[in-house]
Design a binder for these strands. Structure first.
Length: 285
DNA sequence: ACGCCCGCCTGTAAGC
DNA sequence: TGCTTACAGGCGGGCG
């Protein structure tokens, strides 16, 4: 049964929500100073180097690629943030008490600061020249289709899915195929499409591929509109510390033992690839 | 080259 | 009650 506090991890809708907040707050703002206190949040290059390359720079409009936040700087370089499992990017007043696990603080020149808070320290911040992405950030460089940013036809998407020889959920969470999906939205999208997590990708019919494509866009657009999902632990919050609302619309995630809204069968929970997977055994085939 | 699994982390909660 | 164990999961690295 469900009930245990599940970890709500930032996926595309959550990162997009933070991006929109961030864009409003920092576009055109100048970085006055940077303090790096956490041991692991800055891993690509030295902490001193990060501080030097950020200090005095003006930030441009915030972008997003998959689950990566990208803030172009007036130096031409990019500041990149990945929240991974438990990272939070928060806008705060320097006077406010700093939460535990605050690893990086970026002070802005006309008041306010950005805080990178991350209990489990999987997240990271780095600066990269866009020309050196392939060498210094291949993970970011090799991202696949971003469903909100890249106009792609369902036929192109179908070709991509059919090129992989593995289970559908593995394909959907492969960042080189679809950028931005994680455990929660993969399960929600597969339920919306009426497809099981373990369907071999190459067995999908054109009709199923088209339905899957539509489900990706539909679920993600609705989740962004609801400002993402926050679960019991409220690990995910936006730039202002507010929770999202999309968890109220979850059809399968953390709903094991409860009736499927579509067919009233009992939602099942299983382990797949070492991760929890929720699905309806009746209406997903 | 591709598919698959482990380890990294901390907070929370279930189990003994 | 207090300790131990399991679980949460993105992604790089290593293996077959």
């Amino acid at each position: 049964m469900s009930g245990a506090a599940a970890g709500a991890v930032p996926e595309l809708p959550e990162v997009e929500t933070v991006r929109r907040d961030l864009d409003r707050e920092i576009a055109g703002r100048k970085i006055k100073s940077v303090a790096v206190t956490g041991a692991r949040s800055v891993r690509r290059g030295s902490k001193a180097e990060l501080v030097e390359r950020l200090t005095g720079r003006t930030m441009k409009a915030a972008k997003r690629r998959g689950k990566y936040l990208v803030v172009p700087l007036d130096s031409g370089e990019w500041m990149v943030v990945h929240l991974r499992m438990s990272g939070q990017l928060l806008k705060a007043n320097p006077k406010d008490p700093k939460p535990k696990h605050t690893h990086v603080v970026i002070t802005l020149d006309k008041g306010g600061e950005l805080r990178f808070v991350d209990p489990r320290t999987f997240g990271e911040i780095f600066v990269v020249p866009p020309g050196k992405l392939a060498d210094e950030a291949p993970d970011l460089d090799e991202l696949g289709w971003d469903p909100l940013e890249d106009p792609v036809s369902w036929v192109d998407f179908a070709r991509l899915v059919m090129s992989k020889r593995t289970a559908l959920k593995t394909v959907m969470t492969d960042q080189k195929v679809v950028a931005g999906l994680g455990n929660i939205y993969a399960d929600e999208i597969l339920h919306a499409a009426g497809l099981r997590f373990d369907r071999p990708s190459q067995t999908l019919t054109p009709q199923e591929l088209r339905r899957l494509f539509r489900s990706v866009l539909e679920v993600l657009h609705e989740a962004v509109a609801a400002r993402g999902s926050s679960l019991a632990d409220e690990q995910y919050v936006d730039l202002y510390g507010r929770t999202g609302l999309y968890q109220r619309q979850h059809q399968v995630y953390a709903r094991d033992g409860k009736p499927c809204y579509r067919c009233r069968s009992t939602i099942a929970k299983t382990k797949f690839g070492g991760r929890s997977t929720y699905f309806c055994p009746s209406c997903q085939v």
